[in-house]
Amino acid sequence: MADDPQRNFRSAYYEKVGFRGVEEKKSLEILLKDNPLDVEKLSTFSQRFPLPSMYRIHVWKVLLGILPPHSDSHALVSRYRVEQFEDVSGALTAMRFVHASTPPTELYLRVYQLESRQLPRRSELRPPDAEDENFLAIARAMEEIVDDPVDCYWLIRCFVNQFKHKFGDSIPHLPKSLEHFLSQEDAALLAHLKTSGALNSLPYCLWFRRCFAGCLPESSLQRVWDKVISGSCKILVFVAVEILLSYKIMLMGMSDPDGVYNFLSNMPQENTDAIVSKAIDLWHKYCGTPMHSV
């Protein structure tokens, strides 16, 4: 049935205009009524379906542990989270690390550094290093997705920390994994990237350290982050594969690795929703769809 093109067309269409989402939204609402929330089931839901935008931030906060599973603790814990952020940002203001016109993303970085004991002395302030830049890129994207600054800080912090702790060991292997799946999907493209030397200088940092922050527009990015936050870093590989496949014709015509790098680092912002949809399908095809519960 999955091969029925008519059906595929229809479901793609419904997904686009939001009808298919009605059933999913209902089942998510049922899950969200649980007290305590079943974090496992919420992860599975989020792996399988796109999160309805009205619930996205709430589900992310639960999955990242910013809110505990018990709903009747949410008010208290939210108050703690607000106070913690205000305490630290207030101290940073007193220490003159930040002031009224400091961009929020820089404030978030300083709060994060202070909390993780990495705040440099004020007399030794240096320009952001590679890791700071990764943080800032994720922060800028999160800022586009989340309105409330306190929520935004906590989501960045927990996203970055979870990503490091959970996937830190896997990240270095993702380029190899990309090569593997690209060989399955388009051996000719892979061969071209290899012979031109571009394969070794693809924008891996942008893709696998910043999780496409600054690469995909936020509306597409958040659908990728749904999967990352609910427990998959493999999805990043499939997004990369689909980006390469989408621009195959252009890439086949390029032989300069720097040209390839620059093009992919400043990728056109059209059709990114389709790229992400195809990447999610491909990810389900190779890695299976989580079936239990929901």
């Binding site: 305590p36 505990p68 018990h70 208290l76 989270r81």
Partner: peptide, 8 residues
Amino acid sequence: QAKGELQA
């Protein structure tokens, strides 16, 4: 539940 609150 208590643990969640205490951790925060």
